[in-house]
């Protein structure tokens, strides 16, 4: 019995030693390259656009191996901000071997209805709607000659937690190699080119349109090949 316990103890120790960290790097890209907030990008139509602001909540990160959950990040809410490079990188310490990563884009309904939170969820971050409660899951802002708006601005504030307007999207990315560093590409070029900016340039409240855009957004994310 004692021997068995010792064995288990040893086994646990080796497991801890074997455990690694995982650095998750997020990159907002245009045509495969990191977005430059100063630059106007040419569209195939000859029109152009610039992305001045990209901010996004990543939450509920977990890992699985062979279909079983092996790691759940506690208090998992992260605000990515293209203008603040350190925010685009997260480190998960002491993780076991995994072959898939799960996370959500946005903030779940529980946090959306339970008052003022701190850290990345603090309303001072500008990602909480003041006039109608709820988090903005992600923001993409910029200018394009296609938008017949003040200063040719487009403003996508995508959020909503209730009922049909729930814009939280869960996604799974598989990577059998279980690397220590994983770069997740957010190809804004793909997402924005699915939108007719002449018609759709300003979304600032929960709606069916917002839910649709959130799904399209999540579908573009992918693991960048090293």
């Amino acid at each position: 019995m004692l021997f068995r316990l010792l064995f288990i103890g040893l086994f646990c120790c080796t497991q801890t030693v074997a455990a690694q960290y995982l650095d998750l790097k997020f990159v907002a890209t245009w045509g495969g390259k990191p977005v430059d907030a100063q630059k106007y990008y040419k569209l195939p139509s000859g029109d152009s656009l610039r992305i001045t602001n990209f901010r996004c909540y990543i939450s509920g990160i977990s890992l699985s191996a062979n279909g079983k959950t092996v790691y759940i990040e506690p208090n998992s809410y992260h605000l990515l901000d293209m203008a603040e490079p350190p925010s685009m990188q997260l480190r998960l310490p002491n993780i076991p071997k995994y072959d898939a990563i799960y996370f959500s884009i946005g903030v779940d309904s529980i946090m959306s209805i339970s008052g003022a939170h701190g850290g990345d969820l603090d309303p001072e971050k500008g990602m909480y709607w003041a006039w109608q409660s709820g988090y903005i899951n992600f923001k993409v802002e910029g200018n394009s000659n296609l938008c017949n708006t003040r200063r040719n601005e487009f403003q996508f504030h995508i959020g909503g937690y209730a009922g049909k307007d729930n814009a939280l999207v869960k996604l799974t990315l598989r990577n059998a190699d279980a690397p220590n560093t994983m770069t997740i590409q957010i190809p804004l070029s793909k997402w924005l080119q699915q939108i007719d900016l002449r018609q759709q340039h300003t979304i600032m409240s929960p709606s069916a349109e917002a839910v649709q855009l959130a799904k399209q957004f999540a579908a573009t994310l992918n693991i960048q090949e090293p």
Partner: peptide
């Protein structure tokens, strides 16, 4: 429109017709 007392004050602070200010 507001679902919790803690976030209620955000509305009048930021409404342009009320206090027209930002939290930061």
């Amino acid at each position: 429109a507001v679902n919790h007392l803690d976030v209620q004050s955000l509305a009048p602070i930021t409404n342009p017709l009320e206090m027209d200010e930002s939290l930061p």
